[in-house]
Design a protein around this nucleic acid. Structure first.
Lengths: 139, 139
DNA sequence: AACAATTTTGTAATTATTACAAAAGAGTAA
DNA sequence: TTACTCTTTTGTAATAATTACAAAATTGTT
């Protein structure tokens, strides 16, 4: 597996310690964290870490296509490690965001009503499996 | 056509002047406005209007299903007058949001990976027809 | 070691939104 | 009309996410 360091170099980003740690965190914690989540997790290891660094780094990674920024119905941005396009499901009860790897017809690079599509996001909202089961138990 | 006043009464919302004007604005301006857009447009007519009223009213209307709240890739909420489910397209160049009435397989009320779907949003990002044409002209 | 370029840090500012209590308005019964 | 209650609106202050920006630290190079 390609090291995070090498990955950054390949993308033309100089691999500082902070940047490597942030990338590593996103790769190992597939929980769609906010910038603040990333900061709170890493400041334990890097006590001098600054939020501005986190914001700058997440933005830079997103621009380079290393991460994807999500707006799943909330007014805070969440990030995820780049992977195959997939569906996001947000539970209205517990707030968790699930990845759903169902097939759908990607419109990326296609034209629709004359508009050129670059990104195609599918966001679902509802009650997740866990919460549905809990509801049943409570009956 | 049902009056805005009657529409509110039917939904169990007492039809104050502010509420009627806000609903009327959303109905007549299908531009996916933010709360601030609504405020700035209406404060001309209603100089005493408060932003809190706008926020409260938009939230109440959304809860009653009169409006839909969108998070189309930005960290600000936009609102639209309730209508058939449709696709949203956000232009990366001009920032405009277009409604696209293409057919797609609505997952509402269905189950996917055991999760119950209540809302299904499709958000596209790209370059809109207008901006594509302008790009061509500039060549 | 000295220098230049890059990166990180910390603080202040900005923006969207919410909390909350006082003021205003509307409806109703005496 | 007046008194009373309930609802809605208003205005201000607080919160939360994000950005701006300049100083400090780090890195690589001569």
């Amino acid at each position: 597996m390609k090291s995070f360091k090498k990955m950054l170099v390949d993308k033309g980003i100089s691999p500082s310690m902070q940047r490597i740690k942030i990338l590593e965190y996103l790769s190992k914690n597939r929980i769609h964290p906010t910038a603040d989540d990333v900061y709170r997790a890493l400041v334990k290891e890097i006590p001098t870490l600054s939020k501005t660094t986190v914001y700058n780094t997440l933005k830079a990674f997103t621009n380079k296509g290393i991460l994807t920024a999500l707006s799943v119905f909330e007014n805070e941005v969440r990030y995820e490690y780049e992977q195959q396009p997939h569906i996001h499901f947000k539970c209205l009860k517990c707030g968790r965001i699930y990845d759903i790897n169902e097939k759908y017809d990607y419109l990326n690079d296609k034209y629709i009503a004359g508009h050129k599509v670059i990104e195609h996001h599918v966001n679902l909202k509802g009650i997740c499996k866990n919460c549905l089961e809990k509801e049943k138990e409570d009956e």
